[in-house]
Structures are given as structure tokens and as C-alpha cells.
Design a protein around this nucleic acid. Sequence first.
DNA 1: CTCTTGATCTTCT
DNA 2: GAAGATCAAGAGC
Length: 201
Amino acid sequence: MAQNPKPAETSVPRLGKPLKRSFFNRSVHDVAPDLIGATLLVDGVGGTIVEVEAYHHTDPAAHSFNGPTPRNMVMFGPPGFSYVYRSYGIHWCANFVCEAEGSASAVLIRALEPIHGCAAMRRRRGLQEARALCSGPGKLCEALGITIKHSALPLDAQPFALYARIGKPDIVAGVRIGITKAVDLPWRYGLKGSKFLSKPF
DNA sequence: CTCTTGATCTTCT
DNA sequence: GAAGATCAAGAGC
């Protein structure tokens, strides 16, 4: 019998339990793939995370590699906080700080599937196509309204809201995008087959 | 479809 | 003074 009706074109996944800050207090290489499928909202706008990259303090490509500076200071703080930086003078990029305080490791949020508040995202991005709204770290910050004002904020309190995924999705890994150091490390993670990635794997 | 380039500015050397 | 965890538009195929 047809107990599974054809899915709607845009289905809204059930949300798991809210993620606590302690979720981030472990290896950045464990947190990064575990964020695939989680839901990120900023003031109620966002969707399902489909692409991230891990940056470890021993990694030459990490902002924290050469020690603390005014820009990367929040990376050296406790886990479970946001780290937002300016990219190429134009865009914002959002990270989640991981591991014990002082580790200076973080996950870059690179792409998500727009689910909640799509009208607001389309307005901010000046675009209609869902695929282009959040398919890149700068794009998703624009769509979610993330700026430097959102840096160094706890991820388990407003305006942020994070929910665990339900079940375990198929995750793929590959080399990171747009970097010039440590280019061969396979620390980019994505939801297998997602149409909302910044680039295919 | 892929490749190239300009925009724009903060950060660190 | 140069580089950079990007993006969009335009040219070429």
C-alpha cells in the first residue's frame, strides 16, 4: 500500500533536540561531519546545514595557525561560540568554535538548504532560485543576515538556534575550497547528493 | 558548460 | 604592500 505519499517539493525536516554548547567541546573533526544535517537558524531564518569545513589550530590554512590576533581571538575562547570574519573585503563568513578553550579550532559553515524564512532570504540576496541562496559561506551569511555583530555570540542562545539532525545522513568528504595552504587535507564535509552545495564533491 | 577577472577592504608583515 | 576560508558577471567554447 502507498503508506509513503510522494514527498512535497520542499519538505521541512523534523528538528532534533537543541544543540548545547557542549556539543562543540570535542574534536573539530568529529563536530564538523556531525553538523551535516543539523538545522541552523538566525532569528528564525535558515535551514539544514549541507556543507562545512574543519580548521584545526595545527592546520596552516587556519586563521589561528600563527597564534592569536585581534581578528581570530574568539577562536581561542571557549567552544560553542560564533566566529565571523570579513572575506575579501566584501563578504562575511561564519564559523563555530570547537574543542577546549585555547584550542583555536573551528568549523566553517559553507552551505545550507534554505528551509525557514525563504522570503527573507530571497529579499536579502535579491534572488529567487533556492539553490543560489545559501550555496557558499558568503551567500549564506547574507541570506541569514549574519555580520560581524554576530561574532563571539553563544550558539545556544538567540539570535542563534541550532537543532540536532534526526538519523544519520550519507556524508561525503573532500579537499577544502578556496585555500592556498594545506590544500590536500580532506576536511570538507557535505551531505551526499545535495543540490545546495557550493560545489559538487 | 568552464574559465577569467574585477570588486573591495581588513589583516598582518 | 600583499594576500585572502568569496562571489557574480562576462567571455569563450
